[in-house]
């Protein structure tokens, strides 16, 4: 019964093509080829204002992506924003690295930019980045500008 053999072949081919399509979606289209669990360590930083920063926003140094924002929470005691970042283990960073919330372009998305310090010790899992610069809030800027005009 070669008819049913041929049928099984076409069905198998169909399933294979679909799986191939799925892998294309997984590997080439989505960011799955990004950081896996084992390659990263989590570091925290506190900000007065995170502005429009969102979870999964990129963390860069010198323009190169070295990690992602993994969580954003509010500290109920100090009312500061606590941002957790998952950083790539390939790039060890000194403990006096500073983190700033920057904007891509003028009206683009917000991300965290890291500036290296000079210390010999490096950040580990659970370390905290102490030097931080909050996001620039447009309204405050304009307000300051206007008051300075008045003077």
């Amino acid at each position: 019964m070669s008819g049913s053999r041929k049928l099984e072949f076409t069905v198998g081919l169909f399933v294979a093509i679909a799986l191939l399509a799925f892998f294309v979606l997984a590997m080439r289209v989505s960011d799955m080829s990004g950081l896996a669990e084992g390659d990263s360590y989590t570091v925290q930083a506190r900000f007065q204002n995170v502005g429009g920063l969102y979870v999964r926003a990129p963390v860069t140094m010198a323009g190169v992506r070295v990690g992602r924002v993994s969580a954003i929470e509010l500290d109920p005691d100090t009312f500061e924003a606590v941002v957790s970042m998952a950083l790539d283990r390939r790039y060890p960073l000194p403990t006096d690295t500073s983190a700033s919330i920057l904007t891509a372009g003028i009206v683009g998305e917000q991300y965290i930019g890291l500036e290296p310090g000079g210390m010999d010790e490096y950040l580990n899992e659970g370390s905290e980045i102490v030097l931080t610069q909050s996001a620039l809030v447009l309204e405050r800027l304009i307000g300051r500008f206007l008051t300075s005009l008045n003077e």
Binding site: L25, R28, V29, S30, D31, M32, G34, P58
Partner: peptide, 19 residues
């Protein structure tokens, strides 16, 4: 084209959930 796509499309949240 491809790199911006990869930066924006998340595997679990978009591909698995969506498709």
């Amino acid at each position: 084209f491809w790199s911006q796509m990869q930066a924006s499309v998340q595997f679990v949240d978009d591909v698995v959930d969506g498709v």
